[in-house]
């Protein structure tokens, strides 16, 4: 027995293993070479008869035989087991369409609401909700709306026979929450609102708003508000979104601002979507008017806070590039399923 003979045995063993096409044939190869009475055992037993000078070489070759055959057998066995046993079966066609039911799709308005709620939740805001049918007090008076403000008109608001109205904004929820809780208050208020708008591409008689309110006993500033909206803008519209404030007027905040986001279509360079301004108007916001605090029994000298509000449909239209608000209420599956 010399090293060359052992190498020859190895070659033979490997070619037999490669030729085996069934698990049984593989096993036969294993037993012939690596079995208790196999050829490897014979070599090992004969080692003592090998001249000492060659013994190490023969031993090394025997070891290589064992290692390489074991490894090949493992590999071949795996390959045989993986093979599609049913592959040969008649009628099996792996190219047929899969049969598990696909999930449906949430409405884009719901999706925007849930995205907003999730983002503000990270900053400690929880959802508060209120009724669609509101009192004149909660929807207007407590929010410091002047008694002859046009929004109170039957032209703009749906009044019911009871003297209540369909809420024109989700802001009355802020009043309801402040009436029932002590500061600090941190809420977001998604919900459906109603205005007597004639339906067109950008107006709908019912629509959704999501508002937020933060009131605390520690001083809260416009800078805090801007920071919050800047965070929201990045999370909602992308990391390079910036915000800017423009002064505006709302009865329930003072100072009041309108908040623009960088146009996500052009990145602020100016395009048709943003009317070449680089900015898109998204939110109305401001510091809670002290007159509102007094209405709910908070002392404006010791508490301060901010509030903001956004149109959900508007965000959906801006974010997903929907040209006509009516698409959101037509419920055409060819449209809705694109939000999957």
């Amino acid at each position: 027995m010399n090293a060359k003979a052992v190498r020859d045995i190895r070659e033979q063993a490997l070619s037999e293993a490669n030729a085996a096409t069934t698990a049984a044939a593989l096993e036969a190869v294993r037993i012939r070479y690596l079995g208790r009475k196999g050829l490897l055992q014979d070599i090992m037993k004969g080692l003592k008869d090998v001249p000492p000078a060659e013994r190490a070489d023969v031993g090394r070759e025997a070891n290589a035989l064992k290692k390489s055959l074991e490894s090949l057998l493992r590999e071949r066995k795996g390959a045989l087991e993986r093979a599609p046993a049913v592959g040969a079966a008649a009628g099996f066609d792996p190219t047929l369409p899969g049969v598990w039911r696909a999930p449906g799709v949430a409405h884009p308005v719901s999706r925007v609401i849930e995205d907003c709620v999730r983002i503000f939740a990270r900053l400690g805001f929880t959802v508060a909700e209120g009724p669609d049918i509101e009192t004149r007090y909660h929807n207007f008076e407590a929010l410091n709306t002047p008694p002859h403000h046009p929004s109170l008109d039957a032209l703009d608001t749906f009044w019911l026979a009871s003297g209540e109205c369909l809420r024109t904004q989700t802001s009355p929820v802020q009043i309801r929450v402040m009436e029932s809780r002590k500061p600090p208050v941190r809420i977001v208020t998604p919900g459906r609102c109603y205005r007597r708008d004639t339906t067109d591409a950008t107006h709908s008689a019912n629509f959704h708003q999501i508002e937020g309110l933060y009131v605390d006993c520690a001083p809260v500033s416009l800078a805090d508000l801007k920071s919050l909206l800047a965070y929201f803008a990045r999370e909602m519209m992308g990391p390079s979104t910036d915000v800017r404030f423009r002064p505006h007027f709302f009865p329930f905040t003072e100072p009041s601002v309108e908040c623009d986001f960088t146009c996500h279509v052009c990145g602020g360079k100016g395009c048709r979507v943003c009317k070449f301004s680089g900015w898109i108007e998204i939110a109305g916001a401001g510091m809670v008017d002290p007159r509102v605090f007094r209405q709910v029994g908070y002392d404006p000298e010791t508490v301060s806070g901010y509030a903001w509000g956004m149109g959900v449909e508007r965000i959906a239209m801006v974010k997903y590039g929907i040209a006509d608000i009516r698409m959101l209420y037509e419920n055409d599956l060819r449209f809705l399923t694109q939000f999957a």
């Binding site: 959802v127 909700e129 941190r186 416009l222």
Partner: peptide
């Protein structure tokens, strides 16, 4: 208003709020 700075949002957490229905 362009001079309003942005700061890291910070505030106290409120614990009495529940939004289970939503």
């Amino acid at each position: 208003l362009d001079k309003v700075p942005t700061v890291t949002p910070s505030s106290r957490v409120t614990s009495d709020a529940s939004d289970h229905p939503f």
